[in-house]
Design a binder for these strands. Sequence first.
DNA 1: AAGTCGACTTGGTTCGAAATAA
DNA 2: TTATTTCGAACCAAGTCGACTT
Length: 902
Amino acid sequence: MAVEAPAKHVFDFDDDDDDGPVVFKRNNTLSSKQNQLNSEVKKASSQRSDGHSGSLASYVQASNGQSSNSQKNKAIPSSKSLPVRSPILSPKASTSSARTSPVKSPVANFKTPASLNDHSKQALKQHKCNIVKEEKSPIKGATETNSDDDDDLQPLSARLKGISNQGTKGASTSSTSQSHRLVPKTEIKGSTKDPDDEAPLPVRFNMKSSPGTSSSKLYDSDEKKPLASNGEQNGSTVKGKQEKSSMLSGKRPLDKGNSLDQSSAKKPKISDTSTAMKSKQLAVKAEKADEDDDDIPISQRIKKSTPTNSKTSSMKQKAAKVVSSSLKKLNRKSKKEFKNSKYIKSTKVSPSSGDGQKKWSTLLHNGVIFPPPYKLHGIKLLYDGRPIDLTPEQEEVATMFAVMKDTDYMNKPQFKKNFWEDWSKLLGKNHTIKDLDKCDFTPIYEWHLQEKEKKKQMSSEEKKALKEEKLKQEEKYMWAIVDGVKEKVGNFRVEPPGLFRGRGEHPKMGKLKKRIHPSDITINIGKNAPIPECPIPGESWKDIKHDNTVTWLAFWNDPINPKEFKYVFLAASSSLKGQSDKEKYEKARMLKEYIRNIRAAYTKDFTSKDVTKRQIAVATYLIDKLALRAGNEKDDDEADTVGCCTLKVGNVECIPPNKLKFDFLGKDSIQYVNTVEVELPVYNAIGQFQTGKSKSDDLFDKLDTSKLNAHLKELMPGLTAKVFRTYNASITLDEMLNKETKDGDVAEKVVIYQRANKEVAIICNHQRSISKSHSAQMSRLTEKITELKGVLKELKIDLDRAKKGKPPLKDADGKQKRNLTPEALEKKIAQTNAKIEKMERDMQTKEDLKTVALGTSKINYLDPRITVAWCKRHEVPIEKIFNKSLLAKFAWAMDVDPDFRF
DNA sequence: AAGTCGACTTGGTTCGAAATAA
DNA sequence: TTATTTCGAACCAAGTCGACTT
């Protein structure tokens, strides 16, 4: 690519780095842990390097998992090549074989983490709160420590329980309940302790709810958990309720049903390669030999594993291995980062501390790629039944509209109105077309369907060829070199023109989103890097910047809202993103140390004489307990949704003696419906805030997000409202996993994880629309179960007969069935029963998850180290939980100590 | 103090490929 | 194999929040 020259520089550096002493490389890590095994590992590593001629190779590996080739150099073996780096991926395969081998390295190694921690810690200390707990550095794990801490920390919600859920759906209930079923008792293992007990806050409330609420779970833990969880409401409810809510907001009707559903029941795929590995850690801890392997010191584990077999409890041990294996791959990346870090590092690392915030030293990329120009199709729409000729521009926009024929937007007057405004402008004043309602876009729509069909019918070779062609064109845009490390670019494609699809009742839905040209785009690139060539001949970029305090590679103004921007950033797997992700979780963990005092402080302020203080206290309480979003002010030209600070009086209903019912549209116009029991002072305060106001007035009239965050910052450095969401989500996962994981096979453990994941999704109100085929799928399952039950009945009859020495009855077709022994029949009956039970469980899970989106929390709220550590402790292959992109995104978390607790 | 700008995270839906069921 | 169904990645809208203005 284009880059050449400069590139060199870069490369050079890299090389050095790689080889260099650099402090951190992934390899190292490995070694430490496994050492013994290492030998093998090492080899591997070495190879890599060789393989690719030096630097490049290193590059590549480093960051993304993908191939990299750097552009510049000659060397570039194509991307694919680098075996080494194989990213994360699957276990299965591949690459690994070699590496895998015996050893398996554990995952990654990152050194960095440590550093971060330190920082954070320091920070903590400085500040007031008493912190106290020690943090365990991830690395070392302190075994015991953890537990205690955690308790306190629990999510508020836990304290109280949520109460009701509206029953709408039932969903709520289900959650809990079902879980039980699935997993029958899971109690907590002894090892873990239950933290809950002590928790002060929780104490306050809690309890009560239990009974009634469906939600309440059995486990004690419940209490502590976030409230929300309880049942919840939200999701399901949604629909039904919509109307209601709408009153206030009137927005989003929710769903009509739509697509997807997935069931939760997933089956595990095969993946596991796992096997190998042992854990890495150094081990240090004391061990306990007991049953739980978890607790067992690493060292031991290792041993165990190594040899292979189980030691005591066989199962456990494995876990470690499993996890690691997959992980290892990821590691590679780290190296680079680190290198850089070295230099820069000090600065960088410090979270935020920093420096003015230099985000990078050298940045190289090829700019962005534009969508192809519009291709005329010549199909005419009918106006009053007559075909109309359109100019290319008019046709392009007409087609955008035609294609949306079967979407729900066609039922929205606002959408049509906005579309007509923009399209009629293109048609011009004297155009024949004067009324959208007289337009029949069917011919264009049908043409579109045909095109789609054609595409679908293409042979796989054709498809493949097309794909490769596309890849070839895009490849140079897919990568950037940041501080010498090749990193994937997130969205290098400029958004194509289209009609704006705002969510909920967005005032601008249907407006034309015009085509973006190079002259709209500002490029940000390293000072010494070559300026990307403008891909459209004859045109040029709007501007070129060299700002290393930001991470964007390019941006343009949003055509719908010119005051806003659309940015091109690096992909989630990049170290720049990984670093900030880690900082986010470290901040949330820091909150653990402060939470007790924060809760005590706001509790005290529930009755403050100062209204503002009281509002801040109550708002903070809601954010903490219900994981509400902050709630910034919105303009009139946006969908009218709310968050905590923007709640309207009508969004909260007081239900004596001390319950609050929330019903509002939040982000993306997703309805939040939840009824919770709150402390009396909160209940009373809300009542006061509501008196004398109308339903559409702000509940917290003395508050906005900047005031709230300014206040939070006084309590803990860097604390903002959103940190509570991260904290609540992660602490909930950590606690649930630790309490409920018990012995069992991998599939059972995965179910436990999914249950915890679901709990978090409910707390955060992460919803999805119901799949169009959901009901059909459910009825099909029901049918199958009925059928199986019939078979079962027949088997029982045959069994009776067989016992009496009679032959089985004829089957439905009248044919004679085989004569089976009573034993064989009994076995069959047992199998059929098991099958029926499994299907019923799967069905229940599917129903429960039909409106719950698990992915969002996994990507944004759950500290991946919790998951990785749990997988290591319980021998669950990490790829059962994280897919390929998550593995890449969380590469920084892969080397966490198995004893890590949030 | 409020409003605006700017950068970056969070979030649901869509699209297409992969996995399964038929 | 074919038809689904499931799953992951892409997409891009919609939030959060700090900094800078007015």
